[in-house]
Amino acid sequence: MPAEQPLTESTYLILATLTTPKHGYAIMKEVEDLTGGTVQLGPGTLYGVLKSMVKKELIIEQSSSDPRRRMYVITDKGVEVMKRETTRLEMLVIIGKKSLGREEI
């Protein structure tokens, strides 16, 4: 997959929670809290995204973690990808706000 591919909403949010190490369930809870309950990640999506991000080296598993509750944390590459994606999203939001009629938003 090319690096320029936009991240899915789930991927972006999971990545955003991993600036501090967390295990699966803690990620789910934090995403729910951060989005005021509007985004609830299913375990299938969460597990799939975690494994795929480990493969792409956007996050790593912490070596000392309990096998039932493995802890993950963002890598330098992950931070780079998140920065790029944030810039892209910011641009979209600016365009969207302008298009919707500026001041009131």
Binding site: S10, Q40, L41, G42, G44, T45, G48
Partner: peptide, 15 residues
């Protein structure tokens, strides 16, 4: 509560 384990299309497609 979510009633599905896949909450986005992309991860379901991956399955």
């Amino acid at each position: 509560e979510t009633q599905t384990i896949y909450t986005d299309k992309q991860s379901l497609i991956e399955m």
